[in-house]
Design a protein around this nucleic acid. Structure first.
Lengths: 128, 128
DNA sequence: ATCGAAGTATGATCGGCGTCGAACTTCGAG
DNA sequence: CTCGAAGTTCGACGCCGATCATACTTCGAT
């Protein structure tokens, strides 16, 4: 037992943004569920509790995904009562990986499980 | 139309860029070897044969990675003799996923097989 | 003090992806 | 035609990451 307060035990470790690698970030963003979370935070611009996301997986799996996002430096987590709030580390990410967050989270991507949009044929390609 | 040359049989199928999903692109870019290939093409700005990349894996694995990149719409491939040339589909990707290629391929990321920087070495750098 | 809500921690399972070697194909050179 | 170079295809293997159920913790409300 440590001398720390019990709250401290619930404060998870967040990496400094300079210790985060692009590998970590891309691996984190490569999962559709995690990307949906990031997009949700990106779009709303507010901190949200884990429970406010439409989770299509079990609670423990949800915890896992939030953990991956946290360790990839994408979100910051803190407790409010029994709820864990999630905050997008937008400034940090933009500084470390310019343009990446906007390119990924700002993209009009269909939510996982959504009906596919009608594919439209547009002639275009780059010959180069 | 004239009769097709024998070469055509070796021309692999490339997806239309609008059929490519962000999921595919991120999965393709999530691998360090594939990212190194893309970064190489991005930096040089020229088409390059498979063999011109410092492959740290076997030939068959290399073929696999190029195939993933091709099916993710990131590169275009064509034969010149027995060499397969690889071309970055920069215009297409920029149109479909604005900012993404610049953010990823333009990032000063160390190569996967590169010698580790002499600065502090954190234990377990790789996923082991 | 007790209960429920919200999440965490801990195994365990399982499918997919990266990996390889070996055999095969195609092309260019001699 | 023969040979070698460059890649591809195929099958197999191993690892890791996503998933789940269960048990546990912490907090707020009653």
């Amino acid at each position: 037992m440590t001398a720390k307060t019990r709250q401290d035990a619930r404060v998870p470790a967040h990496p400094a943004i300079e210790d985060v690698t692009m590998q970590q970030v891309l691996e984190a963003l490569a999962d559709p569920i995690r990307r949906a979370i990031v997009r949700g935070l990106y779009a709303s611009g507010e901190d949200r509790a884990c429970g406010t996301f439409p989770m299509v997986v079990s609670k423990s799996t949800g915890t896992h995904h939030f953990k991956v996002l946290r360790e990839a430096g994408l979100i910051r987590q803190y407790y409010v009562g029994t709820s864990r709030m999630n905050s997008l580390r937008r400034t940090d990410i933009d500084a470390a990986f310019p343009g990446l967050l906007d390119a990924v989270a700002g993209h009009p991507e269909p939510a996982p499980g959504a009906p596919p949009p009608p594919t439209r044929r547009v002639g275009g390609g780059d010959g180069a």
